[in-house]
Design a protein around this nucleic acid. Structure first.
Lengths: 213, 213
DNA sequence: TAAATTCTGTTGCAATTGCAACAAAAAACA
DNA sequence: TGTTTTTTGTTGCAATTGCAACAGAATTTA
């Protein structure tokens, strides 16, 4: 598997190697891409943060995924029925590489080194995505809001190697991400604080390692 | 992307091409593999059905994934802390191909056609996995048991192109898969039936296309 | 800098869900 | 085949969660 650094190196150079890979810059709060039926677009987030969101028929918003640098996304992963269902929205100013699967992933006749490496890089990116999704699924399968919060804090704490951290999104978005009611989540945060599992100070959380469950 | 048929063709021949890919047969209810820290095993389910399950500290069982033929799994996708956390259990008699990532995915010097194709096939398998996971996530983010059931029935109905179908697992397992209490789920099934959204007859479900929500 | 918008924190209340427990049916086993 | 185990279907009750609504803080926009 490739390291984050190697992947970054490669994506930075992608356009030099392949004219089919295009890039664009998208300002904060703008739509990076919508999901279009029967198009097979891959995108790699070169810079910035973005959310993949869905609006259901009732207008309820769900954050499907939160994307960070080097994350991959695109229609290939969502066989959708109707367009206008899924959007990718820039949370900060972003830079995106995008290309069609057909244009780039097929073997070229002269089996160039570039395409070989691209294949390997894609493998790495996809594996990373699967890992991220597994973490999300683990979290969503927790039966209670408390369990979801603890699972989320746990993975955040692990990935940052610290018991104290800032929640990297608003509590409103966190509720969407955990797929629970915001006010119920706030109530549960208070209760976790009162029970001594966490210390909450605004969006700064400190886990109490003594108390585990 | 490769079709299911092409992938099947390829996996059947995998062992002829590569001595590192091994296979084994596992009888129903036996453990196919446990997840071992720092080992990078890929497995492809050649024949049969299997579940990836997790037991948490309280002994609660969660079905993380249900695997069917051509599905891919392995440690690469679960960065786990402790072994003995995740198991893959055969639901029917199974045949499995397994190999270490290191042994097989690295470029070989003579850039053989086989490795090139393997890389492309892996890309296809991983993409399929991501799609499956996205369906699961979509389902799990539904806030109510009713929503989860409808989302599940919907995708089942679509993949089988029929409004009538048999649930491919027991209701006990379905509750695990949807991550809800079984008795509450049974209650909701009854209510869906009474409200005319479905006709339930044992494990046979018929969707009422008139009623949509 | 003022106005508008979004986010946080809170609460009461109603609806949903989980838990526990049990009997009947079905499936697995020996 | 008869016995054991698992699954289904049900219910009462308690706990959790979602919904609605609101005020104040913080942030964004003009």
């Amino acid at each position: 598997m490739y390291s984050n650094f190697e992947i970054k190196e490669f994506t930075q150079q992608l356009q030099n190697f392949c004219s089919k890979a295009q890039s664009k810059k998208v300002l904060k709060n703008n739509t990076i891409t919508t999901y279009i039926k029967n198009r097979n677009q891959f995108c790699i987030l070169k810079k910035g943060k973005a959310d993949i969101i869905r609006y259901d028929v009732n207008g309820n918003k769900t954050i499907i995924e939160t994307l960070k640098e080097q994350d991959i996304f695109g229609e290939l992963f969502f066989p959708i029925k109707n367009s206008n269902e899924i959007f990718v929205v820039a949370k900060t100013d972003c830079e995106v590489i995008y290309f069609l699967y057909e244009d780039i992933a097929k073997k070229c006749n002269n089996s160039c080194k570039f395409h070989e490496e691209l294949n390997s890089i894609l493998l790495s990116l996809l594996t990373n995505k699967i890992i991220t999704q597994n973490i999300r699924i683990k979290l969503l399968t927790k039966r209670s809001i408390r369990g979801k919060l603890q699972s989320y804090f746990d993975s955040l704490s692990k990935s940052l190697s610290s018991n104290t951290f800032l929640i990297p999104m608003s509590y409103t978005d966190l509720a969407d991400y955990l797929s629970v009611d915001r006010s119920a989540m706030m109530r549960e945060l208070k209760s976790l604080h009162e029970d001594g599992f966490i210390i909450k100070n605004g969006n700064k959380i400190t886990l109490n390692k003594e108390k585990k469950s």
